[in-house]
Structure formats: C-alpha cells, structure tokens
C-alpha cells in the first residue's frame, strides 16, 4: 500500500466528496478550486493575493493534500508558486496554527482555504519557516514588502506588466500527474503536479485541460508539455 488514502473509510470519502463538490460549485472569494479527478484527496487551488498586501495582483497556486487520517489530521498545504512569506518554507510548506494545534475535524476544507488566504494578509513571524522573511517583517516592513512584492511579480504574475490570469475552467481544472518512482516524493509540494500555464487566458487554459484529460501519458502531449514547462521556467 502506498500513501493509503485509498484506505479512507467510506464515510470519510463521502464527506470529502461532498466538501469538494461544494467548494467546486461555490468557491470562497478569491480562491479557485480544481479537484483532481484521479485522486479526490488532492486539491489544487489558486489563491488571489489579497489587496493591500505585497501579494496583491498575484495568483498563488496552492496544493492541499488530505492524508489517510483526514479529517482527524489536518490536510497539508503547499504553495506551488514561490512566495516570500514568513510562514512558507522554501519548498512551499505552510506552517499555520489551524493546520496544526488548532485543527478540529469539523473545521472543513473551506475553513482551511480561508485560513491560508488570511495568512497572506496576517503573516505570523513567530512561527517562521522563512526566517529571513520573519526577520524583515519584524524589523523592516518596507524591505519585507518590497521583497515579497518582487517575488510576487516574478512568480505569481503572468509576465512583465501583464495581468495574471488563473485557469478559467473552474469546473474541471488541470489534472495532476503521478510520477512513478518520483525522485522527490518526499519533498511533497509539487511532486505530483504539472505546472499550470498561467497567463494563457481562458481559451488557453481549457485547451490545456482537455489535452490533459484526453491522454496524459501519450508521447505527443509530452513534447507539448516540455515546451509549456520551458515557458513556465523562463518566467521564474
């Protein structure tokens, strides 16, 4: 048995399906949710950087992974988009109380998403994972803001001066891929995800998703993905 999420008891699975469908149908403001068809316990989201923060204008992709002990154990969140934030580690891991000691099984996924969005507004330098960001936030807010904004512009916006566009196809977002024997399976964050082609606009995004769903492992799409990958990398 691998990650064993398949071992989730039926009543928990049913709960997850319900929550995910509610989220997909009625996402929290400023957050888009892309459930994975292959594995419902993995949720891809895109969070708009809240106004009045150095993240404003950016779209931050975040992956939420429900483990086998969900909902007794909180889901794990990872930013796939680079972000300069005291509570986000360099691999995208998020440290926030709601996802650790304050977690309660009844809180639900919506609450988790809102909390992470809230964390963008109110960082907590006291449980810093990115010490540099934590230090700057405490000592030199202007510097903190400028660094965070810079990273936002580099990584979370579509391109020079351009406005960022999230994938529009809210009903059927990009599908993550499983890489057998993934070398970075412990690294977690984006091991199972393919980068979303941000900035392609609505039509572009839907092409992406249909090419994904039609045949993910075919060689013809692999080449295409490489190109896309390169493009994504160049933006880093």
């Amino acid at each position: 048995m691998n990650s064993n999420v398949e071992n989730l008891p039926p009543h928990v699975l049913r709960l997850v399906y319900k929550e995910v469908s509610a989220l997909a149908a009625d996402p929290p403001e400023g957050i888009k949710v892309y459930p994975s068809e292959e594995d419902i316990t993995e949720l891809h989201t895109a969070i708009e950087g809240p106004e009045g923060t150095p993240f404003a204008g950016g779209i931050f992709r975040m992956r939420l992974v429900l483990g086998k002990d969900f909902p007794a154990v909180p889901p794990k969140g990872y930013f796939l988009t680079k972000i300069f934030h005291p509570n986000v580690g360099h691999k995208g891991e998020i440290c926030v109380n709601v996802l650790k000691k304050d977690w309660k099984a009844e809180l639900g996924l919506r609450h988790v998403l809102l909390t992470i969005k809230c964390l963008l507004i109110h960082p907590n330098p006291e449980s810093a994972l990115n010490e540099e960001a934590g230090r700057l936030l405490l000592e030199d807010y202007a510097e903190y803001e400028s660094r965070a904004r810079l990273l936002t512009e580099i990584h979370a916006m579509a391109g020079p001066g351009g406005t960022s566009v999230a994938p529009q196809d809210t009903n059927d977002g990009p599908q993550p891929k499983k890489h057998a024997g993934d070398p970075t399976k412990r690294a977690g964050p984006s091991a199972a995800a393919v980068p979303v082609a941000l900035g392609n606009g609505a039509s572009g995004a839907s092409t992406t998703s249909s090419s994904n769903s039609s045949n993910s492992s075919s060689n013809s799409t692999a080449g295409k993905k490489k190109v896309r990958k390169k493009r994504a990398l160049r933006r880093l």
Partner: peptide
C-alpha cells in the same frame, strides 16, 4: 521526469 517538475525543483 525531473525536468517536468514545477518551479525550482528540477534545479534542486
């Protein structure tokens, strides 16, 4: 496979 990873991961 590695080159397909997101963000800075391939380099890492």
């Amino acid at each position: 496979r590695t080159l397909k990873l997101t963000g800075a991961q391939p380099v890492e």
